[in-house]
């Protein structure tokens, strides 16, 4: 069977699910951020697959570049926040960081 759009979408789906699961279950803030990276990557796989099989143009790839750019910004800010949290609470377990609790 020839490799088509669906194959890529399935890979994207699986990576996405793994990402969502990571985000939901991890208590380590860095782990949560890794989950977010997985989700963003699955989106990128889909974008490029659509771009290749759907329009055949470059728009999907360009959007992926923006996604990568945002992921880089997000990682930088996210990890800076994590370091800030660590400095303040001496832990990065998101369960123990709950100053916003009502």
């Amino acid at each position: 069977m020839e490799i088509g759009l669906n194959h890529y979408l399935v890979v994207g789906l699986l990576v996405f699910l793994a990402g969502v699961f990571t985000v939901l279950t991890r208590r380590n803030a860095i782990g949560v951020l890794m989950g977010v990276e997985l989700v963003l990557n699955s989106a990128n796989i889909n974008y490029i697959a659509f771009s290749r099989f759907g329009t055949g143009g470059l728009e999907g790839q360009i959007f992926s570049i923006f996604v990568i750019m945002l992921a880089a910004a997000e990682a930088a800010i996210g990890l800076a926040i994590v370091l800030g949290i660590y400095r303040k609470f001496q832990t990065i377990d998101v369960e123990e960081v709950d100053s916003l609790r009502g």
């Binding site: 985000v23 939901l24 949560v32 998101v94 960081v97 709950d98 100053s99 916003l100 609790r101 009502g102």
Partner: peptide
């Protein structure tokens, strides 16, 4: 959901 924990918000989103 109301406790200020990140993951509770994540659950809400999902």
């Amino acid at each position: 959901l109301q406790t200020g924990h990140i993951y509770s918000y994540l659950y809400a989103i999902v």
